[in-house]
């Protein structure tokens, strides 16, 4: 898989009422009923299967979509499924105001890009905007709107470019 630093795709903005959806925990992303699944390809169908308002996400998602959420995305359990289910659907990246600590490293280690946009206003971007996410500069832009987020850490960037933790380690 080529490791691009500029990703282009359709935004999937997760909203709860008028706000960016915060505290989406791993049971909402990938419910514990399906934890025994070990094949990544089988995980996509369960993505957001327990997230109010987005239970049909797996049917509607398109490859190259980019997910946008509020604070503390992926809090809760250590399950890798909560990252892998998006990979299975071809989702390119997850962007959030902040991430749960374990989720963050699970995404990094499996080479799945995530970007933090602290303080992102709730309505700066519009649902299904065609957006550009620049992993190098940490910016998200769509049309005239643009928001500067945190830079990826060096180790996160290197693991991403290598394609995952094991591939990264081979190059060390």
């Amino acid at each position: 898989m080529p490791r691009e630093l500029i990703l282009k795709g359709r935004l999937w903005i997760l909203m709860e009422n008028e706000n960016l959806f915060s505290d989406i925990d791993t049971d909402m992303i990938y419910h514990n009923a399906h934890l025994a699944v070990t094949e990544i390809d089988e995980m996509g169908q369960y993505a957001f299967g327990n997230l109010e308002g987005y239970k049909d996400f797996a049917d509607k998602a398109q490859p190259s979509d980019i997910i946008l959420a509020g604070d503390n995305f992926g809090s809760g359990s250590s399950r890798q499924h909560a990252v892998d289910c998006f990979k299975a659907l071809g989702v390119q990246a997850v962007i959030a105001r902040s991430f749960g600590a374990i989720y963050k490293r699970n995404a990094i280690n499996s080479g799945f890009p995530i970007i933090e946009l602290p303080g992102l206003p709730d309505n700066l971007f519009n649902q299904h905007d065609q957006a550009e996410l620049n992993l190098e500069s940490g910016t998200l832009s769509a049309g005239d709107n643009r928001y500067q987020g945190n830079l990826m850490s060096e180790v996160a960037r290197d693991i991403y470019l290598a394609g995952g933790l094991f591939q990264y380690a081979e190059r060390m």
Partner: peptide
């Protein structure tokens, strides 16, 4: 692979739950 492995904090030790890639490594 248990998100509550940080329970080791109870004895002044470091513990951390991680996903399967991390743990395999």
């Amino acid at each position: 692979t248990d998100s509550h492995l940080n329970i080791m904090g109870s004895v002044g030790a470091f513990g951390q739950g991680m996903g399967d890639v991390d743990i395999a490594y």
